[in-house]
Simulated scan of single mutants.
Amino acid sequence: MPISYATSLSELKDQKSQVEKQKNSLSNQIKKKSTAISSIEAKQEALLEQISKLGSEITKTNDQIAVVTGEIKQTNSEIEKLQQEIIALQEKIDQRDQLLKERARAIQVNGSVSYIDVLLGANSFVDFIDRFSAVNTLMEADRQIMRDQKSDKEKLEEQKLLLENKKKELETKQAKLQSLKESLNAQKAEKNKLVDELEAEQEKLAKEKKLLEKEYSEALEVSKDLQDKIIAEQKRILELSRQNDGEGTLPVVSSGDWTKPTNGTLTSGYGWRNLGYGPEFHYGIDLANSTGTPIVAAAGGVVVYTGPLSSYGNVVILTHNMDGDIYTTVYAHLDSYSVSVGQTVGKGVQIARMGTTGRSTGPHLHFEVHIGTWQGQVPGNVNPLRYIPL
């Protein structure tokens, strides 16, 4: 399906190109700069693809860390249980040892009592039977004490061996967890490096476009009819893309601190862009889908604002405390929201639905990340691709 979309749009763009060529209003220098701009845009697309792949790898590593952390917790619980069982067994063994020592001391003080003497000292046959039963009971009690003592000592050794194996297993899992965390940090560093490169390319693109507009004030004026067709075709492709993304489906919640806030197509990245009325800096990313698509909290936090906010339309703002570090996320152009100020929400919990309120050309989520508390559009603003997976 996407191939047919591109073909249709490509045909319209070819018509636009013919109109532009016919006008012959720009020099070879403009053509060279246009080629340079296309090259930068292509590089940006390649970087975005790499960033997306790294985001998937980070999600997988976070999943593995969650599994290993759970295993370590379970192993620690088993070790604690074994240690308690070993203490209980040792106490029983020590108590029997004490009993046996006391009996040995009593025999040493009072002298050995012969079971035969006890039996022969019977005054009658009935007394003999009673004495015989008592002797049997005493002998069986002695044998049982010795059997229990032997059994518990063997079990104690088994438990100690099992405890040692569990500790070794725990060490192995802790080493694996450390390795996964190191891998995660390396992946995040590589992703941030690519984001830095992407932002540098965006800055470079903005400068190229500004220079082009400064040096050549004449712009191509495509016929209104053809321009309308191109716009309509782009909207058609976008709408079909939104339908394919699955209206009303909650996004998959990723492991780790952050998750993608909604299902949708990335239509505008962070940084410089040109919407037809000159370059502007885009302080977030746009994810497009159909009106009503669920939007979730990108991380666990507290709702600090809901309602209209200038050209952002309906907005929800969340503040997050992650191990003492404060972050703020902004969700804009909402059709509706289902949270209130002061409410605590978990990562992946639905907070709103996608819309096109405020300055918007179609249904999408404008998503921002700020380091620290929100103090306006610019302060603390960072590229969301550093944190959320695409």
Rank of each mutant, 00 (worst) to 15 (best):
Y5Q: 12
T7M: 12
N24H: 10
S25V: 15
K33E: 04
S39H: 13
E41K: 14
K43L: 09
A46M: 13
K60W: 02
I65W: 07
T69E: 08
G70T: 06
G70K: 10
G70D: 08
I86P: 00
E91F: 11
A104R: 09
N110I: 09
F125E: 10
V126F: 03
S133N: 09
R147H: 13
Q149H: 15
E154V: 15
E171V: 13
T172E: 11
A175W: 03
A175V: 12
K176F: 11
Q178N: 10
L180V: 02
E182S: 08
A186L: 14
N192Q: 15
K193P: 00
L194T: 01
L198D: 01
Q202P: 01
E203Q: 05
A206T: 05
K207E: 11
E208W: 04
E208Q: 12
L211H: 05
K214L: 13
Y216T: 14
E221D: 05
E233I: 04
D245H: 12
G248P: 04
V253M: 08
S254V: 07
G256C: 02
P261V: 02
N263Y: 06
T265E: 08
N274L: 08
E280D: 07
D286M: 03
S290V: 07
G292H: 03
T293M: 12
P294T: 09
P294D: 10
P294S: 15
G301M: 01
V303P: 00
S311Q: 15
V315W: 00
T319L: 06
D325G: 07
I326E: 03
Y327K: 07
V330W: 00
Y331N: 00
D335C: 07
V339Q: 02
V341K: 14
G358W: 01
T361L: 15
T361H: 06
H364M: 14
F367K: 04
F367W: 07
V378Y: 10
V382N: 02
P384K: 05
Y387S: 01
